[in-house]
Amino acid sequence: MDRLQFEVPVRITPAPGLPVEEIYGVEQALDFLQGWPAHRQGPVYQKAFNACFGATVEVVKTEEACRAFMAFCRVSGLMAKDMMTPPKRGGQANGLRA
């Protein structure tokens, strides 16, 4: 497995009426974040961007980048309703509640 690939793809709905997209790794998350409107970039966006960029230069673990990107998606209302959270160490995956 590619070191920058997320353990579980992050499922997002980029806009109402559009199909669900799956973000499979750090590079795809960065591409998505770079297209995010500047006037909507707040602290949660910046944390996700920094974490994803940090993962590309091996300063941040991919797992941390995934968590930061998921937090951004949740806060921004992008997270697909059927998205499962990645399993915690030694645990089971958890479903998000609507």
Rank of each mutant, 00 (worst) to 15 (best):
F72T: 03
A51Q: 01
L30K: 05
Q92F: 11
L96G: 07
P16H: 03
K88A: 13
Q34A: 09
V10W: 04
E64V: 15
D2T: 11
V44D: 11
M1I: 09
L33D: 03
R97F: 13
T85N: 10
P9D: 04
A93T: 11
R67D: 06
C52I: 05
E22M: 02
P9A: 06
R11G: 00
M83E: 13
Q5W: 09
E64P: 02
M84Q: 10
L4S: 04
C52L: 07
G42I: 05
F69D: 02
R89H: 11
C73Y: 03
E58H: 11
F49M: 13
A98D: 10
R11F: 00
P43Q: 14
A71Q: 14
L78S: 05
P43A: 15
A29Q: 05
V10T: 13
C73W: 03
T56P: 01
D31T: 12
Q34V: 06
G25T: 08
R11E: 09
D31L: 14
P9I: 03
A80Q: 03
C52P: 04
L96P: 00
P43D: 14
F6D: 02
M83G: 01
P37R: 05
P43E: 15
T85A: 14
V59P: 02
L30V: 08
Y24V: 14
G95C: 10
P19C: 06
L96D: 06
R67K: 09
V57P: 02
C73P: 01
E27D: 12
P43V: 12
Y24R: 15
Q28G: 05
A71L: 14
A51K: 03
Q41M: 10
R67N: 04
P14Y: 00
K88L: 13
A80Y: 02
E21P: 00
E27V: 14
V26M: 02
Q41A: 09
K81R: 12
P37L: 06
A51M: 04
A48E: 08
L96A: 06
V8P: 05
P16N: 03
A48R: 09
G77N: 03
Q28F: 01
D82M: 06
D2K: 09
I12T: 01
Q41V: 07
V26G: 02
V44I: 15
A80S: 13
N50G: 10
L78N: 04
V60M: 09
G77A: 06
Q41P: 06
H39I: 10
A29W: 00
I12D: 00
G77V: 05
Q28T: 08
E63G: 04
E27R: 15
C52W: 02
E64I: 11
A38H: 08
V44Y: 07
F32W: 14
Q46E: 14
Q5C: 13
F72C: 01
V44P: 07
Y24S: 15
